[in-house]
């Protein structure tokens, strides 16, 4: 289903790197990566996952998961925790805590607090724990500043360093607009996946390009990186990857 794309990204392992960042260019949809990673984490026994829904509702991930062959509802409340910011805002309207900041905390601080409390509740009973944040750019839309988002990501990175087997995966849309934040957040982690559109136009057999950058040696002087480029096509029930040159124009 989604094994090939996860293999290409190096995320098809039980132990994931501490911080992974997905940069999504404008006019490209990289939500399929979140669905693929979520499915892979849920399949591992006793691996906890926290899904922070900022771009799509939980229902979207449930439906996308069903297409990829897993049912999130089975795991919800057990190994899967959900912070559905969008649903809360829809239900509470303008009185939602994400808009009103009742405790004097800003949006990112509130979100961080919720994530921390979820991690503290569930981390101890799990072999590993993954925090998936589906779109950081929504935080900008809701009024968070660049500094606040940067601080939020640094807190997340610190959280992943505090605990073994804790992985934080973030995604940022419109990375070409929020270039500074995107680069700063990517520097916090070991793996950066860029979802890029095809510069040459729309092609029926390929949706876009994945550029995977991975820091090879961690440490004080880590500077060696590998870069891998693959093309992807999201189908109805799977995601296919191709190496550049594999697909050509059929005459």
């Amino acid at each position: 289903m989604a094994t090939s794309v996860l293999l290409a990204c190096g995320l098809n392992e039980q132990k994931l790197p501490g911080f992974v960042h997905i940069s999504e260019e404008s006019n490209v949809d990289g939500s399929f990566l979140i669905s693929c990673i979520l499915g892979q984490r849920l399949r591992i026994s006793n691996a906890g996952t926290l899904l922070v829904c900022l771009q799509h509702h939980y229902q979207h991930y449930f439906n996308a998961g069903m297409r990829l062959g897993y049912n999130t509802n089975i795991f919800q409340g057990k190994t899967l925790g959900v912070i559905d910011v969008l649903s809360d805002m829809a239900g509470q309207g303008l009185a939602s805590k994400w808009l009103r900041h009742p405790d004097g905390q800003n949006l990112t601080e509130q979100l961080m607090e919720d994530i921390r409390s979820q991690v503290e509740t569930n981390y101890a009973s799990r072999n590993s724990y993954t925090v998936l944040i589906d779109n950081l750019s929504i935080l900008f839309n809701l009024g968070a500043t660049k500094l606040q988002v940067q601080q939020f990501c640094q807190d997340l990175a610190a959280l992943s360093k505090e605990r073994d087997n804790l992985t934080v995966i973030t995604k940022l849309s419109n990375s070409d607009i929020y270039q500074l934040t995107d680069n700063n957040v990517a520097k916090l982690g070991q793996v950066r996946i860029q979802v890029l559109r095809l510069k040459s136009g729309v092609f029926r057999e390929v949706d876009g390009k994945l550029l995977i950058e991975r820091v090879l040696e961690e440490g004080k002087f880590a500077c060696e990186e590998t870069r891998k480029e693959v093309l992807y096509k999201v189908n109805d029930r799977n995601v296919k990857v191709f190496t550049p040159g594999e697909i050509g124009v059929k005459v």
């Binding site: 799509h56 509702h57 969008l86 649903s87 805002m89 829809a90 900008f140 839309n141 809701l142 009024g143």
Partner: peptide, 18 residues
């Protein structure tokens, strides 16, 4: 710009929820 983007985000949340 700020208000328009925020409005659309909240509209998206509401429309998708029902």
């Amino acid at each position: 710009g700020e208000d328009l983007i925020k409005f659309l985000t909240l509209l998206m949340a509401s429309v998708r929820n029902c």
